[in-house]
Write a protein that binds this DNA or RNA. Structure first.
Lengths: 239, 239
DNA sequence: GAGTGGTCTAGACCACCAT
DNA sequence: TGGTGGTCTAGACCACTCT
Protein backbone atom coordinates (compact mmCIF):
# COMPACT_ATOMS: atom_id res chain seq x y z
CA UNK A 1 0.00 0.00 0.00
CA UNK A 2 3.03 2.27 0.14
CA UNK A 3 2.75 4.91 -2.50
CA UNK A 4 5.29 5.40 -5.19
CA UNK A 5 4.76 9.12 -5.04
CA UNK A 6 6.92 10.89 -2.56
CA UNK A 7 4.65 13.90 -2.26
CA UNK A 8 1.55 11.76 -1.67
CA UNK A 9 3.35 9.89 1.07
CA UNK A 10 4.35 13.15 2.70
CA UNK A 11 0.77 14.42 2.33
CA UNK A 12 -0.63 11.32 4.02
CA UNK A 13 1.92 11.53 6.81
CA UNK A 14 1.04 15.15 7.47
CA UNK A 15 -2.70 14.38 7.39
CA UNK A 16 -2.37 11.67 10.01
CA UNK A 17 -0.19 13.90 12.15
CA UNK A 18 -2.76 16.68 11.95
CA UNK A 19 -5.73 14.42 12.64
CA UNK A 20 -3.87 12.86 15.57
CA UNK A 21 -3.07 16.30 16.96
CA UNK A 22 0.69 15.89 16.65
CA UNK A 23 0.44 19.14 14.75
CA UNK A 24 -2.21 21.08 16.63
CA UNK A 25 -4.98 23.34 15.37
CA UNK A 26 -3.85 26.95 15.48
CA UNK A 27 -0.13 26.12 15.42
CA UNK A 28 2.21 26.22 12.44
CA UNK A 29 3.74 23.30 10.58
CA UNK A 30 7.53 23.22 10.34
CA UNK A 31 8.70 25.53 7.56
CA UNK A 32 9.03 24.24 4.02
CA UNK A 33 12.80 24.09 4.25
CA UNK A 34 12.59 22.21 7.54
CA UNK A 35 10.08 19.77 6.08
CA UNK A 36 12.28 19.18 3.06
CA UNK A 37 15.12 18.22 5.41
CA UNK A 38 12.80 16.08 7.54
CA UNK A 39 11.53 14.11 4.56
CA UNK A 40 14.73 14.21 2.56
CA UNK A 41 13.14 15.85 -0.45
CA UNK A 42 13.32 19.06 -2.40
CA UNK A 43 11.26 22.04 -1.37
CA UNK A 44 9.06 21.86 -4.49
CA UNK A 45 8.02 18.32 -3.53
CA UNK A 46 7.08 19.52 -0.05
CA UNK A 47 5.10 22.29 -1.69
CA UNK A 48 3.12 19.74 -3.71
CA UNK A 49 2.18 17.92 -0.51
CA UNK A 50 1.21 21.21 1.15
CA UNK A 51 -0.86 22.16 -1.90
CA UNK A 52 -2.87 19.02 -1.30
CA UNK A 53 -3.38 19.90 2.37
CA UNK A 54 -4.43 23.37 1.27
CA UNK A 55 -7.13 22.30 -1.17
CA UNK A 56 -8.55 19.84 1.33
CA UNK A 57 -8.84 22.47 4.03
CA UNK A 58 -6.21 21.16 6.44
CA UNK A 59 -3.98 24.22 6.41
CA UNK A 60 -3.88 27.86 5.43
CA UNK A 61 -0.58 29.25 4.20
CA UNK A 62 0.32 32.75 5.32
CA UNK A 63 3.15 34.53 3.57
CA UNK A 64 6.05 35.39 5.82
CA UNK A 65 4.63 33.32 8.68
CA UNK A 66 4.04 29.69 7.80
CA UNK A 67 1.43 26.98 7.28
CA UNK A 68 -1.33 27.34 9.87
CA UNK A 69 -3.18 24.17 10.88
CA UNK A 70 -6.95 24.75 10.52
CA UNK A 71 -9.71 23.29 12.65
CA UNK A 72 -10.63 20.39 10.40
CA UNK A 73 -13.11 18.84 12.82
CA UNK A 74 -15.58 21.58 12.07
CA UNK A 75 -15.90 20.54 8.46
CA UNK A 76 -15.12 16.87 8.69
CA UNK A 77 -18.43 16.00 7.06
CA UNK A 78 -16.99 15.28 3.63
CA UNK A 79 -20.02 15.25 1.39
CA UNK A 80 -18.25 17.55 -0.98
CA UNK A 81 -15.87 16.09 -3.54
CA UNK A 82 -16.29 12.53 -4.71
CA UNK A 83 -16.82 10.22 -1.77
CA UNK A 84 -18.60 6.89 -1.80
CA UNK A 85 -21.31 6.08 0.68
CA UNK A 86 -19.13 3.36 2.19
CA UNK A 87 -16.29 5.82 2.80
CA UNK A 88 -18.68 8.31 4.38
CA UNK A 89 -20.11 5.60 6.59
CA UNK A 90 -16.67 4.54 7.77
CA UNK A 91 -15.36 8.03 8.44
CA UNK A 92 -18.50 9.09 10.31
CA UNK A 93 -19.42 5.75 11.88
CA UNK A 94 -23.04 6.45 11.25
CA UNK A 95 -24.55 3.03 11.89
CA UNK A 96 -25.87 2.65 8.41
CA UNK A 97 -27.34 -0.25 6.52
CA UNK A 98 -27.72 -0.79 2.78
CA UNK A 99 -30.57 -2.68 1.12
CA UNK A 100 -30.17 -3.56 -2.54
CA UNK A 101 -33.61 -3.14 -4.11
CA UNK A 102 -32.67 -3.83 -7.71
CA UNK A 103 -29.63 -5.06 -9.64
CA UNK A 104 -30.37 -5.63 -13.32
CA UNK A 105 -28.71 -5.37 -16.71
CA UNK A 106 -30.62 -3.13 -19.07
CA UNK A 107 -30.32 -0.47 -21.74
CA UNK A 108 -30.58 3.05 -20.41
CA UNK A 109 -34.15 4.25 -21.10
CA UNK A 110 -35.24 7.64 -22.40
CA UNK A 111 -36.83 9.84 -19.78
CA UNK A 112 -34.46 8.65 -17.09
CA UNK A 113 -32.09 11.00 -15.26
CA UNK A 114 -29.25 9.89 -17.56
CA UNK A 115 -28.08 12.36 -20.22
CA UNK A 116 -29.13 11.93 -23.87
CA UNK A 117 -25.66 10.85 -24.94
CA UNK A 118 -25.88 7.49 -23.16
CA UNK A 119 -29.57 6.65 -23.71
CA UNK A 120 -29.73 3.19 -25.31
CA UNK A 121 -26.33 2.14 -23.99
CA UNK A 122 -25.98 -1.10 -22.06
CA UNK A 123 -25.64 -0.64 -18.30
CA UNK A 124 -26.11 -2.22 -14.90
CA UNK A 125 -28.90 -0.52 -12.97
CA UNK A 126 -28.59 -0.59 -9.19
CA UNK A 127 -31.16 0.76 -6.79
CA UNK A 128 -30.25 0.86 -3.12
CA UNK A 129 -31.90 2.14 0.03
CA UNK A 130 -29.62 3.51 2.74
CA UNK A 131 -30.81 3.45 6.33
CA UNK A 132 -29.13 5.42 9.08
CA UNK A 133 -29.95 4.29 12.62
CA UNK A 134 -32.68 2.10 11.11
CA UNK A 135 -34.36 5.06 9.44
CA UNK A 136 -34.59 5.27 5.64
CA UNK A 137 -32.54 8.28 4.53
CA UNK A 138 -31.36 7.98 0.94
CA UNK A 139 -32.29 6.18 -2.27
CA UNK A 140 -29.34 5.68 -4.62
CA UNK A 141 -29.96 4.85 -8.25
CA UNK A 142 -26.95 4.08 -10.44
CA UNK A 143 -26.33 3.27 -14.05
CA UNK A 144 -22.91 1.67 -14.47
CA UNK A 145 -21.94 1.57 -18.13
CA UNK A 146 -21.28 -2.00 -19.27
CA UNK A 147 -18.59 -1.16 -21.81
CA UNK A 148 -16.39 -0.22 -18.85
CA UNK A 149 -17.74 -2.44 -16.09
CA UNK A 150 -19.33 -5.52 -17.73
CA UNK A 151 -20.89 -6.86 -14.57
CA UNK A 152 -21.48 -5.84 -10.95
CA UNK A 153 -21.80 -8.77 -8.51
CA UNK A 154 -24.52 -8.57 -5.86
CA UNK A 155 -21.94 -8.71 -3.06
CA UNK A 156 -20.30 -5.59 -4.50
CA UNK A 157 -23.58 -3.67 -4.68
CA UNK A 158 -24.19 -4.63 -1.08
CA UNK A 159 -20.74 -3.46 -0.02
CA UNK A 160 -18.82 -0.77 -1.95
CA UNK A 161 -18.85 -0.35 -5.72
CA UNK A 162 -16.03 2.20 -5.60
CA UNK A 163 -13.70 -0.16 -3.78
CA UNK A 164 -14.52 -2.75 -6.46
CA UNK A 165 -13.90 -0.32 -9.32
CA UNK A 166 -10.65 1.07 -7.98
CA UNK A 167 -9.01 -1.85 -6.25
CA UNK A 168 -10.35 -4.86 -8.14
CA UNK A 169 -10.79 -3.46 -11.64
CA UNK A 170 -8.02 -0.87 -11.44
CA UNK A 171 -10.21 1.96 -12.73
CA UNK A 172 -9.09 5.51 -11.99
CA UNK A 173 -12.05 7.60 -10.93
CA UNK A 174 -11.19 11.20 -11.68
CA UNK A 175 -13.95 13.77 -11.67
CA UNK A 176 -17.69 14.31 -11.43
CA UNK A 177 -20.28 16.93 -12.16
CA UNK A 178 -23.00 17.13 -9.52
CA UNK A 179 -26.25 19.02 -9.45
CA UNK A 180 -28.40 19.51 -6.37
CA UNK A 181 -32.09 20.40 -6.55
CA UNK A 182 -35.16 20.20 -4.32
CA UNK A 183 -38.15 18.44 -5.85
CA UNK A 184 -41.51 16.99 -4.81
CA UNK A 185 -41.36 13.28 -4.01
CA UNK A 186 -43.25 10.83 -6.19
CA UNK A 187 -45.37 8.12 -4.48
CA UNK A 188 -42.70 5.41 -4.83
CA UNK A 189 -40.14 7.62 -3.17
CA UNK A 190 -42.60 8.69 -0.47
CA UNK A 191 -43.19 5.08 0.46
CA UNK A 192 -39.50 4.09 0.45
CA UNK A 193 -38.36 7.07 2.49
CA UNK A 194 -41.44 7.02 4.72
CA UNK A 195 -42.40 10.66 4.27
CA UNK A 196 -45.79 12.42 4.00
CA UNK A 197 -47.28 13.42 0.66
CA UNK A 198 -46.46 17.08 0.69
CA UNK A 199 -42.80 16.61 1.54
CA UNK A 200 -39.98 17.52 -0.82
CA UNK A 201 -36.76 15.60 -1.29
CA UNK A 202 -33.23 16.70 -2.13
CA UNK A 203 -31.96 15.16 -5.36
CA UNK A 204 -28.25 14.98 -6.15
CA UNK A 205 -27.61 13.91 -9.74
CA UNK A 206 -24.08 13.24 -10.88
CA UNK A 207 -22.03 12.03 -13.79
CA UNK A 208 -18.72 10.46 -12.91
CA UNK A 209 -15.76 10.18 -15.26
CA UNK A 210 -12.55 8.16 -15.41
CA UNK A 211 -9.02 9.50 -15.71
CA UNK A 212 -9.21 9.16 -19.50
CA UNK A 213 -12.43 11.20 -19.51
CA UNK A 214 -14.78 8.33 -20.28
CA UNK A 215 -18.21 8.62 -18.59
CA UNK A 216 -18.84 5.43 -16.61
CA UNK A 217 -21.43 6.15 -13.94
CA UNK A 218 -24.63 8.17 -13.70
CA UNK A 219 -26.21 8.52 -10.28
CA UNK A 220 -29.37 9.89 -8.74
CA UNK A 221 -29.36 10.14 -4.95
CA UNK A 222 -32.69 11.05 -3.35
CA UNK A 223 -32.37 12.31 0.20
CA UNK A 224 -34.96 12.90 2.88
CA UNK A 225 -34.82 16.68 3.15
CA UNK A 226 -34.81 16.69 6.93
CA UNK A 227 -31.75 14.44 7.04
CA UNK A 228 -29.81 16.14 4.28
CA UNK A 229 -26.71 18.16 5.00
CA UNK A 230 -23.98 19.15 2.61
CA UNK A 231 -20.75 20.76 3.73
CA UNK A 232 -18.25 22.32 1.37
CA UNK A 233 -14.79 23.74 1.85
CA UNK A 234 -14.22 26.25 -0.95
CA UNK A 235 -11.37 28.47 -2.01
CA UNK A 236 -11.66 31.76 -3.84
CA UNK A 237 -10.38 31.48 -7.39
CA UNK A 238 -7.74 34.00 -8.33
CA UNK A 239 -8.70 36.19 -11.21
CA UNK B 1 -4.60 44.94 -14.65
CA UNK B 2 -1.76 42.81 -16.01
CA UNK B 3 -0.78 40.22 -13.47
CA UNK B 4 2.66 39.95 -12.05
CA UNK B 5 2.37 36.20 -12.03
CA UNK B 6 3.40 34.53 -15.19
CA UNK B 7 1.40 31.37 -14.58
CA UNK B 8 -1.80 33.32 -13.78
CA UNK B 9 -1.41 35.26 -17.00
CA UNK B 10 -0.98 32.04 -18.93
CA UNK B 11 -3.99 30.56 -17.13
CA UNK B 12 -6.17 33.54 -18.03
CA UNK B 13 -5.02 33.46 -21.64
CA UNK B 14 -5.85 29.78 -21.94
CA UNK B 15 -9.25 30.31 -20.28
CA UNK B 16 -10.23 33.00 -22.76
CA UNK B 17 -8.99 30.88 -25.65
CA UNK B 18 -11.07 27.95 -24.45
CA UNK B 19 -14.20 30.01 -23.80
CA UNK B 20 -13.83 31.64 -27.22
CA UNK B 21 -13.46 28.25 -28.87
CA UNK B 22 -9.96 28.90 -30.13
CA UNK B 23 -9.17 25.67 -28.35
CA UNK B 24 -12.23 23.54 -28.98
CA UNK B 25 -14.07 21.13 -26.72
CA UNK B 26 -12.87 17.60 -27.36
CA UNK B 27 -9.52 18.66 -28.82
CA UNK B 28 -6.16 18.75 -27.11
CA UNK B 29 -4.17 21.78 -26.01
CA UNK B 30 -0.63 22.10 -27.35
CA UNK B 31 1.73 19.92 -25.35
CA UNK B 32 3.42 21.27 -22.25
CA UNK B 33 6.74 21.66 -24.02
CA UNK B 34 5.06 23.48 -26.91
CA UNK B 35 3.23 25.77 -24.49
CA UNK B 36 6.46 26.53 -22.66
CA UNK B 37 7.99 27.63 -25.96
CA UNK B 38 4.86 29.60 -26.89
CA UNK B 39 4.82 31.52 -23.62
CA UNK B 40 8.57 31.63 -23.13
CA UNK B 41 8.48 29.93 -19.76
CA UNK B 42 9.66 26.76 -18.11
CA UNK B 43 7.55 23.65 -18.23
CA UNK B 44 6.82 23.76 -14.48
CA UNK B 45 5.28 27.21 -14.87
CA UNK B 46 3.04 25.90 -17.65
CA UNK B 47 2.09 23.03 -15.39
CA UNK B 48 0.97 25.48 -12.69
CA UNK B 49 -1.32 27.20 -15.19
CA UNK B 50 -2.68 23.83 -16.34
CA UNK B 51 -3.24 22.79 -12.72
CA UNK B 52 -5.50 25.79 -12.39
CA UNK B 53 -7.43 24.83 -15.52
CA UNK B 54 -7.72 21.31 -14.14
CA UNK B 55 -9.22 22.23 -10.78
CA UNK B 56 -11.70 24.56 -12.42
CA UNK B 57 -12.92 21.87 -14.78
CA UNK B 58 -11.64 23.32 -18.06
CA UNK B 59 -9.39 20.42 -19.01
CA UNK B 60 -8.65 16.81 -18.21
CA UNK B 61 -5.06 15.66 -18.49
CA UNK B 62 -4.48 12.22 -19.94
CA UNK B 63 -1.08 10.65 -19.58
CA UNK B 64 0.66 9.93 -22.84
CA UNK B 65 -1.95 11.88 -24.82
CA UNK B 66 -2.34 15.47 -23.71
CA UNK B 67 -4.66 18.00 -22.10
CA UNK B 68 -8.21 17.43 -23.30
CA UNK B 69 -10.53 20.45 -23.40
CA UNK B 70 -13.76 19.63 -21.53
CA UNK B 71 -17.26 20.88 -22.28
CA UNK B 72 -17.31 23.74 -19.77
CA UNK B 73 -20.68 25.08 -20.82
CA UNK B 74 -22.45 22.16 -19.19
CA UNK B 75 -21.39 23.18 -15.72
CA UNK B 76 -21.15 26.90 -16.10
CA UNK B 77 -23.46 27.57 -13.16
CA UNK B 78 -20.71 28.37 -10.69
CA UNK B 79 -22.42 28.24 -7.32
CA UNK B 80 -19.58 26.08 -6.10
CA UNK B 81 -16.46 27.82 -4.86
CA UNK B 82 -16.69 31.36 -3.55
CA UNK B 83 -18.60 33.54 -5.94
CA UNK B 84 -20.47 36.71 -5.14
CA UNK B 85 -24.03 37.27 -6.24
CA UNK B 86 -22.90 40.10 -8.49
CA UNK B 87 -20.40 37.88 -10.28
CA UNK B 88 -23.05 35.19 -10.74
CA UNK B 89 -25.47 37.73 -12.11
CA UNK B 90 -22.93 39.00 -14.60
CA UNK B 91 -21.78 35.63 -15.83
CA UNK B 92 -25.32 34.28 -16.18
CA UNK B 93 -27.07 37.51 -17.17
CA UNK B 94 -30.02 36.57 -15.06
CA UNK B 95 -31.92 39.86 -14.96
CA UNK B 96 -31.70 40.21 -11.25
CA UNK B 97 -32.46 43.05 -8.88
CA UNK B 98 -31.25 43.63 -5.32
CA UNK B 99 -33.26 45.33 -2.60
CA UNK B 100 -31.40 46.30 0.56
CA UNK B 101 -33.83 45.66 3.44
CA UNK B 102 -31.50 46.48 6.31
CA UNK B 103 -28.05 47.97 6.78
CA UNK B 104 -27.18 48.55 10.43
CA UNK B 105 -24.24 48.48 12.79
CA UNK B 106 -24.82 46.14 15.70
CA UNK B 107 -23.23 43.57 17.97
CA UNK B 108 -23.76 40.01 16.82
CA UNK B 109 -26.60 38.57 18.94
CA UNK B 110 -26.78 35.13 20.53
CA UNK B 111 -29.16 32.77 18.81
CA UNK B 112 -28.25 34.08 15.38
CA UNK B 113 -26.69 31.89 12.69
CA UNK B 114 -23.25 33.24 13.60
CA UNK B 115 -20.87 30.92 15.47
CA UNK B 116 -20.33 31.33 19.22
CA UNK B 117 -16.82 32.69 18.77
CA UNK B 118 -18.03 36.00 17.29
CA UNK B 119 -21.18 36.58 19.36
CA UNK B 120 -20.92 40.04 20.91
CA UNK B 121 -18.48 41.32 18.30
CA UNK B 122 -19.22 44.53 16.44
CA UNK B 123 -20.47 44.02 12.89
CA UNK B 124 -22.43 45.50 10.01
CA UNK B 125 -25.63 43.56 9.43
CA UNK B 126 -26.95 43.57 5.88
CA UNK B 127 -30.20 42.00 4.77
CA UNK B 128 -30.92 41.90 1.06
CA UNK B 129 -33.64 40.45 -1.11
CA UNK B 130 -32.64 39.20 -4.57
CA UNK B 131 -35.22 39.10 -7.31
CA UNK B 132 -34.72 37.21 -10.53
CA UNK B 133 -37.03 38.20 -13.37
CA UNK B 134 -39.02 40.21 -10.81
CA UNK B 135 -39.63 37.17 -8.63
CA UNK B 136 -38.19 37.02 -5.11
CA UNK B 137 -35.65 34.19 -5.01
CA UNK B 138 -33.09 34.64 -2.26
CA UNK B 139 -32.72 36.43 1.06
CA UNK B 140 -29.09 37.19 1.95
CA UNK B 141 -28.18 38.03 5.53
CA UNK B 142 -24.59 39.07 6.23
CA UNK B 143 -22.58 39.99 9.27
CA UNK B 144 -19.43 41.86 8.21
CA UNK B 145 -17.02 42.09 11.14
CA UNK B 146 -16.21 45.73 11.95
CA UNK B 147 -12.64 45.12 13.10
CA UNK B 148 -11.83 44.29 9.47
CA UNK B 149 -14.40 46.37 7.57
CA UNK B 150 -15.37 49.36 9.76
CA UNK B 151 -18.21 50.51 7.57
CA UNK B 152 -20.19 49.38 4.53
CA UNK B 153 -21.72 52.23 2.50
CA UNK B 154 -25.26 51.77 1.23
CA UNK B 155 -24.12 52.05 -2.39
CA UNK B 156 -21.81 49.09 -1.81
CA UNK B 157 -24.54 46.92 -0.30
CA UNK B 158 -26.69 47.77 -3.29
CA UNK B 159 -23.93 46.84 -5.71
CA UNK B 160 -21.18 44.35 -4.81
CA UNK B 161 -19.59 44.01 -1.40
CA UNK B 162 -16.90 41.66 -2.73
CA UNK B 163 -15.75 44.15 -5.31
CA UNK B 164 -15.53 46.74 -2.51
CA UNK B 165 -13.59 44.41 -0.21
CA UNK B 166 -11.12 43.23 -2.84
CA UNK B 167 -10.60 46.24 -5.05
CA UNK B 168 -11.23 49.18 -2.71
CA UNK B 169 -10.05 47.83 0.62
CA UNK B 170 -7.44 45.44 -0.77
CA UNK B 171 -8.65 42.47 1.28
CA UNK B 172 -7.68 39.01 0.10
CA UNK B 173 -10.66 36.68 0.36
CA UNK B 174 -9.29 33.18 0.63
CA UNK B 175 -11.60 30.40 1.76
CA UNK B 176 -15.02 29.58 3.12
CA UNK B 177 -16.87 26.78 4.83
CA UNK B 178 -20.43 26.31 3.57
CA UNK B 179 -23.26 24.18 4.84
CA UNK B 180 -26.46 23.50 2.94
CA UNK B 181 -29.64 22.33 4.63
CA UNK B 182 -33.38 22.27 3.91
CA UNK B 183 -35.58 23.81 6.59
CA UNK B 184 -39.15 25.00 7.10
CA UNK B 185 -39.64 28.70 6.38
CA UNK B 186 -40.62 31.02 9.19
CA UNK B 187 -43.45 33.55 8.59
CA UNK B 188 -41.09 36.46 7.81
CA UNK B 189 -39.31 34.41 5.18
CA UNK B 190 -42.61 33.12 3.77
CA UNK B 191 -43.77 36.65 3.22
CA UNK B 192 -40.54 37.92 1.70
CA UNK B 193 -40.14 34.99 -0.69
CA UNK B 194 -43.87 34.78 -1.41
CA UNK B 195 -44.27 31.09 -0.65
CA UNK B 196 -47.07 29.06 0.98
CA UNK B 197 -46.93 28.03 4.64
CA UNK B 198 -45.93 24.43 4.21
CA UNK B 199 -43.02 25.16 1.91
CA UNK B 200 -39.42 24.50 2.82
CA UNK B 201 -36.44 26.68 1.91
CA UNK B 202 -32.82 25.86 1.16
CA UNK B 203 -30.43 27.54 3.58
CA UNK B 204 -26.76 28.03 2.75
CA UNK B 205 -24.75 29.20 5.75
CA UNK B 206 -21.13 30.15 5.30
CA UNK B 207 -18.14 31.55 7.10
CA UNK B 208 -15.63 33.37 4.92
CA UNK B 209 -11.98 33.91 5.81
CA UNK B 210 -9.18 36.17 4.62
CA UNK B 211 -5.75 35.11 3.41
CA UNK B 212 -4.38 35.50 6.95
CA UNK B 213 -7.14 33.23 8.26
CA UNK B 214 -9.14 35.94 10.00
CA UNK B 215 -12.92 35.37 9.90
CA UNK B 216 -14.56 38.44 8.40
CA UNK B 217 -17.99 37.48 7.05
CA UNK B 218 -20.83 35.22 8.17
CA UNK B 219 -23.66 34.69 5.73
CA UNK B 220 -27.05 33.05 5.64
CA UNK B 221 -28.63 32.74 2.20
CA UNK B 222 -32.24 31.56 2.14
CA UNK B 223 -33.36 30.27 -1.24
CA UNK B 224 -36.79 29.43 -2.56
CA UNK B 225 -36.51 25.67 -2.94
CA UNK B 226 -38.12 25.61 -6.37
CA UNK B 227 -35.57 28.08 -7.72
CA UNK B 228 -32.53 26.57 -6.08
CA UNK B 229 -29.89 24.77 -8.10
CA UNK B 230 -26.36 24.01 -7.09
CA UNK B 231 -23.76 22.62 -9.47
CA UNK B 232 -20.41 21.30 -8.37
CA UNK B 233 -17.36 20.15 -10.26
CA UNK B 234 -15.50 17.73 -8.02
CA UNK B 235 -12.29 15.76 -8.30
CA UNK B 236 -11.56 12.47 -6.61
CA UNK B 237 -8.94 12.92 -3.91
CA UNK B 238 -5.97 10.57 -4.21
CA UNK B 239 -5.50 8.35 -1.23
C1' DG C 1 18.42 41.00 8.97
C1' DA C 2 16.73 36.41 9.29
C1' DG C 3 13.07 33.49 8.27
C1' DT C 4 8.91 32.53 5.83
C1' DG C 5 6.16 31.29 1.70
C1' DG C 6 5.53 32.58 -3.72
C1' DT C 7 7.44 32.17 -8.13
C1' DC C 8 10.43 30.56 -11.77
C1' DT C 9 14.10 28.00 -14.02
C1' DA C 10 16.71 24.07 -16.58
C1' DG C 11 17.34 19.75 -16.38
C1' DA C 12 16.47 14.85 -15.34
C1' DC C 13 14.12 10.28 -15.26
C1' DC C 14 9.86 7.73 -15.46
C1' DA C 15 5.21 5.65 -17.18
C1' DC C 16 2.10 5.74 -20.67
C1' DC C 17 0.33 6.20 -25.58
C1' DA C 18 0.69 6.05 -30.36
C1' DT C 19 3.00 4.26 -34.57
C1' DT D 1 10.59 4.79 -30.99
C1' DG D 2 9.23 9.47 -30.17
C1' DG D 3 5.93 12.28 -27.88
C1' DT D 4 3.07 13.01 -23.92
C1' DG D 5 2.22 14.07 -19.05
C1' DG D 6 3.95 12.83 -13.85
C1' DT D 7 7.50 13.39 -10.63
C1' DC D 8 11.62 15.24 -8.53
C1' DT D 9 15.74 18.04 -7.94
C1' DA D 10 18.90 22.13 -6.66
C1' DG D 11 19.14 26.49 -7.01
C1' DA D 12 17.63 31.32 -7.55
C1' DC D 13 15.18 35.74 -6.59
C1' DC D 14 11.25 38.04 -4.61
C1' DA D 15 7.63 39.93 -1.08
C1' DC D 16 6.27 39.61 3.26
C1' DT D 17 6.55 39.23 8.62
C1' DC D 18 8.79 39.50 12.79
C1' DT D 19 12.07 41.36 16.13
Amino acid sequence: MTNQNKYLGIYQDLVTKITHNIYETGSYLPSETQLSELYGSSRETIRKALQNLLTNGYIQKIRGKGSLVLDVKRFVFPVSGITSYKELDESLQMESETRVLQLVDMTIPTGSFAPESVVGDQATFIERLRLVKNEPSVIDRDYILSNIVPTVPMAVAQDSIYDYFENKLGLEISYAVKKITVEPADPTVQKLLDIPETESVVVVRSETYLQDSRLFQITEAIHRADRFSFVEFARRIKK
